[in-house]
Design a protein around this nucleic acid. Structure first.
Length: 584
RNA sequence: GCGCCCGUAGCUCAGUCGGAUAGAGCACCAGAUUCCUAAUUUGGGGGCCACAGGUUCGAAUCCUGUCGGGCGCACCA
């Protein structure tokens, strides 16, 4: 529980006491009472809307309710300056000693500061990337990958039991295309001239080594064989190779999912049949005809009876086909089985991260998950909008022909894993964003990655210099935890402590909203405050961190810096970004 | 035609389950800057929160409609 929640409970307790005393009516809904830091810091350290939300149901004026509450709050420990403002806000501040006491917590917990029990260990499944295993990951996968991974880290920090998952689409026709493309490369490896890759097959060079590996292993065994003989073997081999590629790409982003579920395996295990049967028994399957699509005209459209799932009963716009014209399962049916399988494995909360181009798929998947679990499982789907890659303010065309890169790997090679991760997380995932490859490598205020990393590095630099100045070998020898925090009296120092104390609340808020990008803004703010304090020391020598004539104050300030470094590191860890101790 | 996402400063974007005078960075203008610990710093101008209604003590936020942008729209994956 964060401190704001603690004080909120105290306010609720006070309200209940007032009710018990008969000064407020019984049966008031207290859920809408908030307690938060005010936007304007001149209003104090904390503010509550309690009086305003209670006034109307109580049939009283907000300021009258406020004065009753404020009167009792004055007796709370550590509180000072309780007052009523505006339409009925109750603002108050906490004593400096209260804030100083929080320093010990931060230093004690280190990067675990901000860990929360909010999730109560609830199991939650986060599926992301799930790109077709037909080649290396594309830059377009980067945002979903990073968002999914960071969201998982965030939820873990907030106390959820998170399992990350990748669903391998290895049962559709695209993996047959992969197998055929690989066969061509196999023939090439055996010395045949394959010419240009025919339309409809995958032309990428990454299949050359796969074909060669098969030629090395099996010789010319498949050279003259019919496709029916080699297709399965080539598909299995190539998919395995492609998944190795994908895993390597993810690894280079620092991502390693816990579970890889194979679509093919789900089909072969009969899970899809079981799902179909379940839906059928619930009366959610029927045979009918659909309207022709309303968008672009489809050339090969033919009206025919289809096996349909009653998705409309669960909020979808139309019912959805479960079988293709050849009688096999649709991708959708298999994906229902995928989500059913997760439910069966004990996940009642699931999150999928999709690209924006899959937006049309959201309603049906949520509908199906709802149906197949009998309403017991909930599926959230987060859409990641497109990222426009820029270079020096100019949009980049992403095509091999123009010599610009197209793969995720190439993007990482250009700017580095940590930059990709941080920048992708600086914007809300469901809005489009720009990513300027030039700007993110600049060492300036304009580059949030640099600015935050620099703050962390600067903390460590100060600590290193301090050790030298104090002739101490190891920071542990300073016992910073036992410093006299009361010496931190400058408003800028207290402001930093308040910001750090807000960190646990940030984690809970961001986790609840499933919005990792809030962390980026928080880190930027903390970095700004720290850099600001550093700069004050330029003008005012008494505000420097290391003061040779005042060891007590120096130690207290070093403790503050240590705390800042820890909170920044804690924040970066949620992003999966490694904090730097020096910039070079 | 329908569905989803979005529209906030010149630009890129925040804005906490509805809260006080709507914020940040960049850009722009003006000042400081052989003081130092590491990559300057201080201040300023700049807004019909797309538009119009509605709900509310209170709306950028919720609801309805209009306009504008993005994505998607049998059997593919």
């Amino acid at each position: 529980m964060n401190l704001f929640e603690t004080f909120r409970e105290r306010v609720v307790t006070i309200v209940n006491e007032i009710v018990a005393a008969g000064d407020l009516p019984e049966g008031l809904n207290l859920d809408r009472i908030n307690l938060e830091p005010p936007r304007d810091t001149s209003h104090g350290d904390m503010t509550t809307n309690a009086a305003m939300v209670l006034a109307k149901p109580a049939g009283m004026k907000p300021r009258d309710v406020a004065s009753k509450i404020a009167e009792k709050m004055k007796s709370l420990e550590a509180l000072k300056n309780v007052d009523i403002a505006g339409p009925g806000f109750i603002n108050f501040s906490l004593s400096n000693s209260f804030w100083h006491a929080q320093m010990a917590d931060i230093l004690d917990l280190g990067v675990r500061y901000g860990d929360s029990q909010m999730g109560k260990g609830a199991k939650i499944n986060v599926e992301f990337v799930s790109a077709n295993p037909t080649g290396p990951l594309h830059v377009a996968h980067a945002r979903g990958a990073v968002t999914g991974d960071a969201l998982s880290l965030l939820l873990r920090k907030a106390g959820y039991d998170v399992t990350t998952e990748y669903y391998i689409n290895d049962a559709g026709s695209q993996v047959d295309t992969l197998a055929r493309s690989t066969h061509l490369r196999y023939l090439e490896a055996l010395g045949e001239d394959i010419g240009t890759i025919p339309e409809g097959l995958y032309p990428g060079d990454y299949l050359v080594p796969v074909g060669k590996a098969l030629a090395d292993r099996d010789g010319d065994k498949w050279k003259l064989a019919d496709e029916a003989e080699w297709l399965t073997e080539f598909r299995t081999f190539a998919v395995a190779q492609m998944m190795d590629l994908v895993r390597d790409d993810l690894q280079s982003l620092g991502i390693k999912q816990d579970v890889f579920t194979s679509e093919k395996a789900l089909v072969e295990a009969g899970t899809v049949d079981a799902v179909f049967k379940t839906l059928d028994e619930k009366g959610l399957i029927y045979t009918g005809e659909l309207e022709p699509p309303k968008g672009k005209p489809v050339d090969d459209w033919e009206s025919r009876p289809q096996t349909l799932f009653k998705a409309t009963e669960f909020g979808d716009d139309t019912d959805r086909p479960l079988k293709k014209s050849d009688g096999s399962w649709t991708y959708f049916t298999n994906d229902i089985a995928n989500h059913y399988d997760k439910y069966r494995r004990g996940f009642s909360q699931m999150i999928d991260i999709f690209g924006a181009d899959h937006g049309g798929y959201v309603k049906r998947m949520k509908a199906a998950t709802n149906a197949v679990s009998g309403g017991e499982a909930s599926l959230e789907i987060k859409l990641c909008q497109m990222v426009h890659l820029m270079k020096g303010g100019e949009p980049m065309r992403m095509s091999k022909r123009s010599g610009n890169f197209v793969t995720l790997r190439e993007l990482i090679d250009e700017v580095g894993k940590d930059v990709v991760r941080f920048i992708m997380l600086t914007r809300k995932s469901d809005t489009q964003m720009e990513f300027d490859l030039q700007k993110v490598l600049e060492q300036s205020r304009d580059n949030p990655v640099f600015y935050v990393q620099y703050a962390h590095a600067r903390c460590h630099s100060v600590l290193r210099n301090a050790l030298e100045a104090l002739s101490v070998a190891d920071i542990a020898a300073l016992d910073l935890k036992d410093s006299d925090f009361a010496r931190l009296e400058d408003p800028a120092e207290l402001e930093i402590i308040r910001t750090m104390v807000n960190w646990p609340r940030m984690i809970e808020g961001a986790a609840q909203a499933q919005e990792p990008h809030r962390i980026a803004y928080y880190l930027n703010e903390l970095a700004t405050q720290f850099h600001g304090l550093w700069n004050k020391g330029k003008d005012n020598a008494s505000l420097r961190f290391v003061l040779t004539d005042d060891k007590e104050l120096t130690l207290a300030r070093l403790a503050l810096i240590q705390a800042v470094a820890l909170v920044i590191a804690s924040g970066l860890s949620v992003f999966g970004v490694d904090p730097l101790e020096e910039l070079r």
